[in-house]
Design a protein around this nucleic acid. Structure first.
Lengths: 156, 156
DNA sequence: AAGTTTGTTCAATTAAAACTGAACAAACTG
DNA sequence: CAGTTTGTTCAGTTTTAATTGAACAAACTT
């Protein structure tokens, strides 16, 4: 009562899903599709494989892999006898991913803290409200840092 | 050695910051600025106050407050003797905000789980990798749910 | 060295999202 | 009731982001 589905279509759907969800993380859709491909296939994919299988320009692949490398989600590897670049998931991609999420939120918190620090002493109302707002971001950071520690233990 | 800053400029900067950070949360910038205004000022603002002080059209305000109301971040209140709508922060805005974040992530996890369930039995590699990826989303959800519970205790 | 292949860059294009403002309906006012 | 104010809607515009593809440099191949 499952299983009449062939793997190719599951793969295609998965890749598209990751493409969409990447947009939530501030990555272009194509970068998400590259990541989805590498997760699903689990083996190095060449630069032109990616361009062809995703039906996008080489420029887009170049841009996407740059973004994914910067975030330490994928790494570039060499393949003997082929001078193309190959790409595969980085070593602890999910740790890096979560790290990125935490940093993004922490940065917002810092900005709020900055505003907070600039509020004149006599403006108690705004100060209290911004402090509460900053506290909210702090709670998110703490929760995600806990998740990050858990993740680090099983080396994801 | 702080404090040579006047409150108006701190306010303006804060509002713009929230406007920018709103884009991370899938809200349009103007909605973020509305939220920032309500957080900073801490008192009900009228519909046209918002349009004028943010220098945007009434259509934009209408759209923004709708989005913010849907997410339970702000509420519409009446003011005696004025037939305009007024808006102020909802009761536990940060709890709602975090709830929204958790749900968004949980929804992605569900999509991955769906793909996972459709993978044929013989495809052990993809299954394991998708499971790990789903686990990563699960860890985020758990971490944020903890944060949510903490937040609920001090009623933010 | 001449010719390929490869990946990057960036100007131009396309696509997506945000925003405006005029038209409208509903609720009010005198 | 005629006129006003108020908030919503949505078609059109503007703005922003993503994507393409041609030009290029670097590394390889014969």
């Amino acid at each position: 009562m499952q299983k009449q589905v062939e793997i190719g279509s599951v793969r295609a759907e998965f890749i598209e899903k990751i493409g969409v969800s990447a947009q939530n993380e501030g990555l272009p859709r194509i970068a998400g599709r590259v990541l989805g491909t590498l997760i699903f296939d689990g083996k190095p994919a060449s630069f032109s494989d990616l361009a062809e299988s995703l039906l996008v320009s080489r420029g887009s692949i170049s841009n996407s892999v740059r973004l994914l490398e910067e975030r330490l989600l994928i790494k570039r590897v060499a393949k003997a006898g082929d001078r193309q670049d190959y790409f595969q998931l980085a070593d602890n991609p999910y740790t890096s991913m979560l790290d990125g999420v935490v940093n993004r939120i922490a940065r917002v918190k810092l900005e709020i803290d900055e505003s907070l620090a600039q509020i004149p002493d006599d403006a108690g109302g705004p100060r209290a409200r911004l402090a509460q707002y900053a506290g909210f971001y702090g709670a998110m950071v703490t929760g995600l840092e806990d998740a990050l520690n858990n993740l680090r233990q099983d080396k994801s």
